[in-house]
């Protein structure tokens, strides 16, 4: 996030960090105990989901707190229109974790907006992430936050030079005057707005022309447009099969027998 500040502890309890091969690559948001919402382009570099990890309850990338939890990824569902009508269109990914998130004061789910949510009228929206904090490539281990005004799509299309660049299922946000915007590494993270004391996620950080040009605002996947698809997939996709704790003693017994057999021959 360019032009942001470090977020206070627990202020954005739905924020997640997606790691690839041990490094932060993208953000995401908690939808429920098993599902995280992120950007499709965060996952198309490799089909091997084993290389991805998800962290929740994190404020500093290098410091695990009391509420920090780590998860392996069970499966990733990319939106069927990803890269179909636009190089980065349909940039939505649903990430199913192998085990359930334990919610706490610092780890909580975000709401999806209803498809007809009214985004006019000066709603206050915020973006968060561990992405670049300067145009020179400086990073921050501390989660950054920035309040960003929404920019009407027709204006955003003019700024980007052609209507086809910014589709209706995208939205734009950025503080042109104060040079606040999202940047590389914030992808997949949430753009959230407060409605009647509830926070709804209306955008997923997706793309932009660099981060340093204020007249090219950040472009987000428009979550209300994808809400039905998200809801349907979460409700119809089976949960992962988790190992049952009752199997542990049996495993222990097997190991004991095996060790005994291996230890046996030299005695004979």
């Amino acid at each position: 996030v360019l032009g942001g500040v470090s977020a206070p502890e627990g202020k954005w309890p739905w924020q997640v960090s997606v790691h690839y091969a041990g490094f932060h690559v993208c953000g995401g948001s908690i939808l429920n105990e098993y599902w995280v919402l992120s950007a499709a382009h965060c996952f198309d570099r490799d089909k091997n989901v084993k290389a991805y990890d998800v962290y929740v309850g994190l404020k500093n990338l290098k410091v695990a707190g009391n509420d920090t939890q780590w998860f392996e990824v069970n499966q990733v569902i990319l939106h069927p229109t990803y890269q179909v009508n636009h190089p980065i269109g349909g940039d939505v990914a649903l990430v199913q974790l192998k085990s359930r998130i334990v919610f706490s004061e610092s780890v909580l789910p975000i709401c999806l907006p209803p498809p007809e949510v009214n985004l006019t009228g000066g709603v206050k929206c915020w973006a968060t992430g561990w992405g670049l904090v300067s145009q020179r490539g400086a990073t921050s281990d501390e989660l950054q936050e920035a309040q960003l005004p929404l920019i009407p799509v027709p204006l955003c299309q003019i700024l980007y030079g052609h209507r086809s660049y910014v589709l209706p299922n995208m939205l734009c946000a950025g503080d042109i005057w104060n040079r606040k915007t999202v940047c590389e590494g914030d992808s997949g993270g949430p753009l959230v707005c407060e409605f009647n004391r509830s926070w709804l996620q209306i955008g997923i950080v997706s793309w932009g022309r660099g981060c340093a040009y204020p007249l090219f605002p950040g472009v987000y996947a428009r979550v209300p447009y994808f809400a039905s698809w998200i809801y349907h997939n979460i409700k119809t996709t089976p949960l992962p099969v988790e190992p049952m704790p009752s199997l542990c003693p049996a495993l222990g017994a097997t190991l004991t027998v095996l060790v005994a057999m291996l230890a046996g021959p030299p005695v004979l």
Binding site: W35, F103, S106, L108, C111, L112, S198, L200
Partner: peptide
């Protein structure tokens, strides 16, 4: 939601916890 807070305004995908709330508000 507890502690007198109204139900969340958005679509919740979590059955036991209110979505879009911070800290104790989410319980």
């Amino acid at each position: 939601a507890v502690r007198g807070h109204p139900k969340s305004q958005g679509i919740s995908l979590s059955s036991n916890w209110a979505c879009g709330r911070r800290g104790a508000e989410g319980r």
